[in-house]
Amino acid sequence: MQNAYKYSVIYFLLFSLLLLASSVFLFEEKIGFSHREVINYYLGNEVLFQSSKTTTGLLKVLLPHIFGFGLFIMVVLHFLIFTSYNKSKYIYIVIIATFISGFFELFSSFFILYGFEFFAYIKLISFIVFQSLLLYIFWLLGSSIFYE
């Protein structure tokens, strides 16, 4: 990687860490990290005065996130091309896993809304896997910038 671009990538990773941190705080604040809280958030709870989400409401949140996820994952992953991990076979698995976990993180909310409460677990697992994979990719990029 050229020296000048290393600066950009380092800063991009710092911003990405902020983005990840804010998404964790936002998830905790708006939804919560337990199965019951996820169900309550999407299906509502009369006791807690929580209203259920609508398909249109979900789509409004989902639409910018589909674009954002795709763009963000692509930008972060394409940096790996400039590192020595480029030719590694297991990076291919990491790339596929990142996109799949991102997909389930986005779309599992629809399944919850249509009555498949089991998808609350999928939502939580995919969120954690997605964040962990991104952190792992940041670590790979960071280590290749500083040690290669």
Binding site: Y11, F12, F15, L19
Partner: peptide, 14 residues
């Protein structure tokens, strides 16, 4: 607000 700001700022600035 801050979540959206981070995303747009990082893309523009990068």
């Amino acid at each position: 607000f801050i979540h959206t700001q981070i995303f747009f700022m990082m893309m523009i600035i990068f």
